[in-house]
Design a protein around this nucleic acid. Structure first.
Lengths: 144, 144
DNA sequence: CTAGGAGCTCGAGTCGGCTCTAGGTCAAGC
DNA sequence: GCTTGACCTAGAGCCGACTCGAGCTCCTAG
């Protein structure tokens, strides 16, 4: 935990985060790194383990649909440090709601998909004792 | 259920489906309508209730991330009718898996977000009897 | 008779988030 | 000495799914 900081190359970080080297440079340019990346004598980026940790968090945020500008905002707040906790919390809560909403929407979509799959399964291979005409679920779009 | 078919205009369909008129024309052009839209004497589109039902299904599929080309494929199969049920079923099952995957991914993201929110809440307003240093969850990205 | 509103077509523009290209530096290995 | 491979910058390109605009035709109400 001392300052040995093993200097990861961009390629290694790409491997560890699942991001492409292109994406890593893009993210840096978009201001999505808590502290500025250092460079070696040849101008090559040197990442730290902290950077990787941070990027992995960002990957999660992106994967759950947080737009890049908002991640930048979050990063800014984190960089500024003390006194920004309430804003960071607010931002996370907002995102939390978005994610919950997405899950909700997907779950409802999945219900319909499951239902339609059921219809096709029955149509292709009707279970014994089951009638052909399947009750419609309200007015839901159950066409074809 | 007879062939009265009350001829909906594109504007009415837009209202009923939540799609824009632009999107409706775009979808038609993309082949995402089970049967070709009829036109009135002036060349205006006339939709049926079936079209609306179908479109509402498509809206759900889109909302759950099915790409337009795949909806077109599904529409083609539906249009062809009998004998394509197994393909339609396969297509739906594939999508079902995708949606489940998405929900899964979002749920896991949400876990981390919830965790971080908890960290900030404690940091801003520590509950009595709670210590400051919060145990890290494995090596998970819990930075800042 | 004319103004407004809804519709039409065709094609261009937009947006987000990368991804790729061109043209170059540098260090290691043969 | 030369090739190879990883890295660099700046900027262009791409993809999907719409969205928008220009310029037109209708119909209807005042």
């Amino acid at each position: 935990m001392s300052d040995i900081a093993p200097h990861l190359t961009i390629g290694q970080v790409a491997e560890r985060t699942g991001l492409s080297v292109h994406a890593l440079r893009f993210y840096e340019q978009e201001g999505i790194l808590a502290n500025p990346v250092r460079r070696d004598v040849g101008g090559r980026r040197l990442y730290t383990e902290q950077d990787v940790e941070w990027l992995n968090l960002c990957v999660i945020l992106r994967a759950s649909g947080m737009p890049v500008p908002e991640i930048r905002r979050y990063t800014d707040l984190a960089r500024r440090g003390d006194g920004t906790e309430d804003e960071r919390l607010a931002l996370l809560r907002e995102h939390q709601q978005r994610v919950i909403g997405q899950i909700d929407q997907l779950t409802r979509s999945l219900d319909l998909i499951n239902f339609k799959i059921g219809v096709y399964e029955d149509r292709l291979d009707p279970a014994p004792g089951e009638m052909c005409g399947i009750a419609r679920i309200g007015d839901a779009a159950v066409t074809s």
